[in-house]
Design a protein around this nucleic acid. Sequence first.
DNA 1: CGGCGCAAGTAACGCGCGTTAGTAACTCAA
DNA 2: TTGAGTTACTAACGCGCGTTACTTGCGCCG
Lengths: 368, 368
Amino acid sequence: MANSTPPAPAAEAGAATRTTTAVPINRGVTMADVAKAAGVSRTAVSFVLSNRENSSISEDTKLRILEAVQTLGYRPNAGARALASQRSDWYGLVTEIVTAPFAVDIIKGAQDQAWLDRRFLLIAPSDQADAVGPNQGMEDAAVEKLLEQRVEGLLYAATYHRAVHVPQSAHEVPTVLINCFDADGKLPSIVPDERAGGRVAVERLLRAGHSRIGVINLDPDIPAAVGRLEGCREALAEAGLELDPELIVSGHATADGGYEAACEILDKFEAGAGRPTALFCLNDRMAMGAYDAIKERGLAIPQDIAVIGFDNQELIAAYLRPKLTTVALPFEEMGALGVQTLASLTAGQPITAHQQMVDCPLLERYSV
Amino acid sequence: MANSTPPAPAAEAGAATRTTTAVPINRGVTMADVAKAAGVSRTAVSFVLSNRENSSISEDTKLRILEAVQTLGYRPNAGARALASQRSDWYGLVTEIVTAPFAVDIIKGAQDQAWLDRRFLLIAPSDQADAVGPNQGMEDAAVEKLLEQRVEGLLYAATYHRAVHVPQSAHEVPTVLINCFDADGKLPSIVPDERAGGRVAVERLLRAGHSRIGVINLDPDIPAAVGRLEGCREALAEAGLELDPELIVSGHATADGGYEAACEILDKFEAGAGRPTALFCLNDRMAMGAYDAIKERGLAIPQDIAVIGFDNQELIAAYLRPKLTTVALPFEEMGALGVQTLASLTAGQPITAHQQMVDCPLLERYSV
DNA sequence: CGGCGCAAGTAACGCGCGTTAGTAACTCAA
DNA sequence: TTGAGTTACTAACGCGCGTTACTTGCGCCG
């Protein structure tokens, strides 16, 4: 046990690295150190580093200071800065997406936008997706933790479009909901325009010459189903058609559900005798099942039956054969827009609308 | 324009909420306020809130203080605390996963573990996945930003198992790599045990009675392919078999690639005349393509041909028909283990191994 | 020559908190 | 009666930084 500390502690490892690298370690290099090195006051350093106007620091000493910053490897202490300036440049993002990663792109969009705005996103997990009852313990704690970090605003993002109940404490700070909306209607929100999405999907099918279109529906209660179906009806109406109730089948929102629903629709009619020539699947997972049902019957996509999906789940849509034409949910845009909206709010600016709807673009692939 | 400020600024909104809710808003409630309310010194409050031993605060005043905390809605200021105590309880997670969300579960595992340890994870995006050249600007900036926040340690997570180059500044602080390893071999890392995974997959096929097994290989250069194939060979060897080179086909790591590779293998032999009765696809996307090739030939899974995948990409494996038996990458475990390892490092404790390998469990479904 | 204005800085306070070194009162054995 | 030992606190410093108010030297106008 004499001289045996084989797995060197972290600090030592750092020190060891120091000898081999040109960049000095700066643990604890403070503004005061920089000031001393440059032979000026700490105030001068602060002025230079914050690019203050009217600072009346000569170009000469400014250079001296910046040089000292460089050689010492000074790095500002964000916490101390936040404490002194009373602003943190942090936003908190509470989300169940980490748990159920359907809509990760919301995080990506928000991250990127925050990065552009030179702000930091603190991401805290939520469990609301599972919580039917008021099992919001974790979630409340998450918001609480974020407020302890003195975030300037909160983002609240859901995996799928729905109404949510937001913890009380979220009202203490500007808050924006993404891919969900406040059940109490108080908080601003950003949601996909499901209706327009459904419309664009069906318009695409109509444009391809289909007039008899089967619909594989989701659970009819969720906002996504309502909106998409409504858009579908609108598009048909504009073409002078209407949706044959016999052509709507609801199923479980899985591949199996889609398979069964597609079987039902396809077997209900003889070919040419009312059988649809196209299927609008309200999500991609169901489209995946529908593919199987169609292929099983010896039919070709898109020659015999065209298929269009919704959600653009890359892993499915881009890898099905043929690749699936589908409508994308604008996750990334919603994330970015959420951060922008929050930025407006925290800056005290008015926001354009209480609920902002983002377009769902059509992604052309090869199934229509 | 007289009395028109319709979109009330954030602060006002907060104030408005105050009147309708029982919980008071606490913007700016500080320890001093609590102290005043309880009629004690700020120090006393600090002692009570930090549960300090030997604090010699009477039960009586302790209660008074806690009550004041409650009624005022005091919330500690994490930044100030970090500044004073010289520890932030933050870890930084740099990752490209946000960009290419293949391995989100790493984030989930890390988040959950960090939450358990009452630490906060600051997630910063990286672009390394795309960056063949030294386009590490963003990434360096990310590490820099994290260090400015005075994170106590860094986690570095990749979407797929590979060697990475870590920015210099990451060496200033304890750092652990997840799902990747340091090209320079200096930093501790956590990776999946690909070899054992390949082995378990093939053992499963052998156990089902298959002795002639086709392999749909990945790009043979990446660690995943090397390890999985090695494990495959080991399992075969133990059964007294060896891998027929004719049965290995490499393809692009997509569904199309898997489809083509499967076609090649299946069409190379007559049924019964050397044609494999099982396929080991080195990832699930390729298995997805293989499914098509098999079904196209009128063969049934698993009756005529068994298929086993790798990666357990839920969206694919759980929705293919029949559902795909596959080997899961232990993303969540790796994330959690990463945080634990980092915790050891920052605590100055030795870590068990420089490179920790995590098992890849077999997920039984219905394709074998 | 005196005072004014400006350029170039600096001293010092406070942000909210952890922490150390004390103080004041009270008890109790010698 | 005293001093040592406890109990129950508090004063005050410093963490690293932003910011305000102040100082100092110097040129220049009247």
